[in-house]
Design a protein around this nucleic acid. Structure first.
Lengths: 316, 316
DNA sequence: CCGAGATACTTGACATTAGCAACTAATCTC
DNA sequence: GAGATTAGTTGCTAATGTCAAGTATCTCGG
C-alpha cells in the first residue's frame, strides 16, 4: 500500500481567492459609490431609499433587517426622509407597533433620479468592457448570487420568440458548442448559418417557429420548427440546442414538446429531424417525445466520420 | 420574420444584473465584516493594516490611493497605529516628503491575529457550501477579478483570421449593435446573416478575407473583403464593425488599411463599399483611407428611412 | 382576562468615521 | 530659481453608527 502525502487543503486555496475577491470588490464598490455621492443622498440613505421604492409594503424592521443596519439609525434616517417630504409614516392597521412606510410622489421622484444616476454609472462601467467580457462578468455575478443566497431552487426558464441578435447568437453557440464538445470544424457553423439564414429569409409565421429558452435574461437554448422543403404536411425540427449549464433540467424536453404542440396546431401530419448517432442525450429527448429512428447513414462532415440518423414522429 | 416582443437593450439587462449583484454583495460584505468586529480593529483599520502587512515597502500615499480613503484620515489612523506601537514611521531617504511605514513586531503579530480571524471566518463561510458550489463560486470570483482589474487600455489589439464561432458572433454583434445604436430592426441582422452566409459558402481564399480584431482574446471588431459579384477587378468591403468599448483607438482605420493592403496584393483595381449617411464615424475612416463618395440614394430598410451611399477607392 | 415577555420603533447620549481645507516641507519642472 | 506639484499633517466639522433606555403594542400561557 502506498501512502501518499496529504493533499494540501483545497479549501485553503479557495479561502485565499475568496478573501482576495472580497478585498478587491470592497474597493470596487467603494469607487462605484464614491461617484454616486454627487446626489443628495449618502450611501446609507440611498440604500434605504432603494428598499423603500422597490419593496411593495415596507415596514421599518424589514428594512433594518434586510440591510443589516441599526434600528435606531434607520429610525433617524426615516425621520429625515419624512421631514423632507419624501416619506409618509402611518401606524399599521394590523399591528399598532409597526409603521407603514410609503414614499410620497416626491420620494418616488427622488428615487427615480437617484436610480437613473446609478444606472447611468453602471452602464458606463459595463460599456467600457468588450461584450464577451461583459457577458462573462454578468453570468459570473448571477452564479455567485445564486450560490450565496442559497436559493438552490433553480430559476424557472422561459421560452420566448427570438429577438434582434438571437439569430447570430444561435449560430455562434452552435458553432462553439459542437466544436468544443465533439471537435467539429467550421463547416458545421456554416451549416447552422445556412439553416438560420434560410429560416430568416423565408419565414412563414403560420407554419414555422423559433423558440429561445432563457433564464433570467440569458439565452440557454433554442429550437426551430420549419416546413419540410418538399412535403407540405411534414414539419422539420432543427437546431435543438441546450447550453451545458442548463442541462439536466428538462429544458430539451420542454423545447421539443413546444415544437410538437405547435406542429399539431399548424396541422402537420408528421415531424422529422436529422441528427447524429453520437448525440445520445438528444436521442433520449426525441424518444421521450415519441420520435423513432427510421434511417441511418454514415457520412463525412464537419471534419469527422459520423453516422447521420433520421427520426420521425407521426402526429395523426 | 415577426418579433412579438420588443427588443430590450442587451446592455440594459446586464446593467440590471450588475446593479443587483452590487447591492447583494454590499450586504454580504457587510455581514462578513460585522463578525470581524470582535477584533480590536475597525474595518478601515483592518484594511490599512492588511495593506501595511502585505505590501513590501509602504508609503502612505500608496495606501490612501489603493484603498481610496482620505489622506488626512489615513494619517490619523497611522498615527494611532504608531502610538499603539504597531508601526514605525521614518522619513524616506529617497524622498524627504514621504514616510516609510514599517510594521513593528507587535504590528505584525496584530496582523497575524486579525488575518487568522478573517481567514477562519472565510473558511467557515465556504465550508458551508457544497464542494461543487464552492468551486463554481471561486472560479466566478476569479473571472470577475480578471475582468474588472485588467487594464485594457494598455493591451494591444491583434487582427487575425476567423475561428469557429466567429461567424455567428459577427452576425450577433451586428444585429445587436445597430439595433441599440440606431434602432434598426431584425431585417438588418438578416442581411448580415446573408452576407456572412455567402462569404462562408463561396469563400475564395486567394481573393477574399475576413479579419477579426481582438484584445486579450475578446472579439472587438471585424471586417470583410469580398469579390464584387459582377466585376472581377473590383473588391467589396463589407461589415466593418468596431465595438463601442474599442472605439477611438484607431481600430477602424487598422481594419480598413489591412483590407486595402490585401486588395492590392490580390490585384484588385478598385475597392467599393455601401454604407449609410448616418454612419458618420465610419465615413471619417473611409475618407482617411482614400475612399470618396460616388453616389447617394434614399431607401427604406431595417425599419428606418435611410440614405445609402456608395464609396470607392481607386487602387491604380 | 391578566401579566410576563417579546416585538416594533423612538430617542438621548455618545463615539467613531470621514472629509475638507489650510498648512508645512520637499521635490519637480521649466 | 520661481512656480507648480506632491506628501503628509492637523484643525475643524459633519456624517455615520452604536448602545441603552424608554414607550407602545402584541403574543401567549395560564
Amino acid at each position: 500500500m502506498v501512502l501518499t502525502q496529504e493533499a494540501p487543503s483545497e479549501l485553503a486555496g479557495q479561502t485565499a481567492i475568496f478573501r482576495r475577491f472580497n478585498r478587491t470588490y470592497t474597493k470596487f464598490i467603494g469607487t462605484l459609490n464614491e461617484k454616486l455621492l454627487n446626489s443628495d443622498f449618502s450611501l446609507g440613505e440611498a440604500r434605504v431609499l432603494y428598499e423603500l421604492a422597490t419593496r411593495s409594503a415596507s415596514k421599518a424592521s424589514e428594512i433594518a433587517d434586510g440591510l443589516g443596519i441599526d434600528a435606531g439609525y434607520l429610525s433617524r434616517l426615516l425621520g429625515k426622509f419624512e421631514r423632507d417630504g419624501l416619506l409618509q409614516r402611518k401606524a399599521s392597521e394590523q399591528d399598532g407597533r409597526s409603521t407603514e412606510l410609503i414614499l410620497t410622489a416626491r420620494g418616488k421622484a427622488a428615487f427615480k433620479k437617484l436610480d437613473a444616476l446609478s444606472n447611468e454609472q453602471a452602464h458606463a462601467t459595463l460599456e467600457g468592457l468588450p461584450p464577451a467580457a461583459r457577458m462573462e462578468l454578468v453570468s459570473c455575478m448571477q452564479s455567485i448570487e445564486r450560490i450565496l443566497t442559497k436559493d438552490r431552487s433553480r430559476l424557472p426558464y422561459v421560452l420566448r420568440p427570438p429577438r434582434v441578435g438571437d439569430m447570430g447568437w444561435i449560430i455562434y453557440r452552435e458553432g462553439v458548442g459542437y466544436a468544443e464538445q465533439f471537435g467539429w470544424d467550421e463547416t458545421f457553423e456554416a451549416l447552422a448559418a445556412k439553416i438560420v439564414g434560410e429560416f430568416v429569409a423565408n419565414f412563414d409565421p403560420s407554419r414555422e417557429r423559433c423558440w429561445i429558452a432563457e433564464i433570467d435574461g440569458q439565452n440557454i437554448g433554442h429550437i426551430f420548427l420549419v416546413k419540410h422543403p418538399d412535403q407540405p404536411q411534414t414539419a422539420k425540427l432543427r437546431l435543438l440546442y441546450v447550453e451545458r449549464c442548463a442541462r439536466g433540467m428538462g429544458l430539451g424536453d420542454a423545447l421539443v414538446t413546444e415544437c410538437i404542440r405547435f406542429a399539431r396546431t399548424a396541422d402537420y401530419r408528421k415531424v422529422v429531424l436529422w441528427t447524429q448517432s453520437i448525440l445520445v442525450a438528444a436521442h433520449r429527448i426525441y424518444s421521450r417525445a415519441g420520435f423513432h429512428l427510421v434511417k441511418e447513414e454514415p457520412h463525412h462532415s464537419f471534419g469527422k466520420d459520423l453516422i447521420g440518423q433520421e427520426w420521425e414522429l407521426d402526429l395523426s
